[in-house]
């Protein structure tokens, strides 16, 4: 029998929750799906050794829903991957997010794991991050008497480090509804056909007009220390005519950008060439689909 050996609180509403978070002298962590936290706690992971209090947010309805309000899609922080995968709004407007979350872990995991839980600890292999980045996701962070909005990109600071303050909670993910003409794709490479940690993830969104990229957004995961958008490549690409040379060129640029960030490490021997190949394939698929 395993015991987590810490205190647990189960606030019923946001107010109670924020009060708990505001208590300074407790080392607390939010418990949502628990798929990362419980494992970490059992395995004695450094991230959780000092955790004295778990604040279970599962009872708070407001954090657990998907809405389309005006031109924004709002995903509650404790919405599970399964709920996202099967949601109409997401299916219609955010197909890359659907594809990404449907490839995470097993069904049992997706039935529990939550969207915010996927990125709050900023692990490089969080599969929801590249799609959220290309969808320009913003986060609402709340704390007692305070509320702020921050882009996901700025939120993700460094590996295993975010902008989240101790008394704060990610309450929602806010995504502007993408333009109807936007197309794109998500790519994941794992070692096994299912339930595999990502080796490489890529997300691309673009609008193709008169055989040129009118808008393009590119993000990767697992190949860089944190999930990342590639603005330089995006800017370079705009209004360029699409042909094979351009696609190759973009793929090389992606390789260069990643190399700049990571330098040559043990995994580069494999990941660098493969990420260029697969980015090239992904672009080809998108262009052909169009």
């Amino acid at each position: 029998m395993i015991n987590l050996n810490c205190k647990i609180e189960t606030p019923k509403n946001i107010d109670e929750l924020l009060k708990l978070l505001a208590v300074e002298n407790f080392n607390s962590k939010i418990l949502a799906g628990g798929t990362d936290l419980i494992v970490g706690k059992i395995q004695g992971s450094k991230r959780f050794v000092d955790t004295e209090l778990l604040i279970d947010i599962n009872k708070i309805e407001e954090l657990h829903k998907i809405d389309l309000i005006d031109d924004k899609i709002i995903i509650g922080a404790s919405t599970t991957f399964s709920e996202i995968e099967n949601n109409k709004i997401i299916n219609e407007h955010l197909p890359l997010l659907k594809k990404a979350v449907s490839k995470i872990g097993s069904l049992q995991i997706r039935n529990r794991a939550t969207i915010a839980g996927n990125f709050v600890n900023n692990a490089p292999c969080a599969d929801s991050v590249p799609p959220l980045l290309v969808y320009n996701a913003e986060l609402e962070l709340i704390s007692f008497g305070n509320k702020r909005t921050i882009s996901l990109e700025n939120f993700l600071e460094a590996p295993y480090k975010t902008q989240l303050q101790k008394s704060e909670l990610v309450s929602k993910i806010i995504i502007p509804v993408p333009d109807k003409n936007i197309i794109g794709d998500f790519y994941k490479l794992g070692r096994r056909r299912a339930v595999a940690i990502s080796r490489i993830t890529l997300a691309v969104l673009c609008r193709i007009e008169n055989n040129s990229f009118d808008d393009i957004r590119i993000a990767s995961g697992a190949v860089t220390p944190i999930g990342k958008r590639f603005y330089e490549i995006e800017n370079f690409t705009r209004e360029k005519r699409i042909n094979n040379d351009l696609l190759i060129n973009l793929s090389q640029m992606l390789g260069e950008e990643i190399l700049k960030i990571t330098g040559l490490r043990w995994s580069s021997a494999y990941k660098l060439p493969v990420v260029q190949q697969m980015f090239y394939q992904l672009l080809n698929n998108i262009v052909i689909k169009k």
Binding site: D245, L259, L264, Q276, N285
Partner: peptide
């Protein structure tokens, strides 16, 4: 299969695989 050089990780144009042959 391609041969890759660790020291030169940016692929030459001719190393990119034709999508039909992937």
């Amino acid at each position: 299969l391609n041969e890759y050089e660790f020291e030169k990780p940016i692929l030459k144009k001719n190393k990119f695989i034709d999508p039909k042959k992937l």
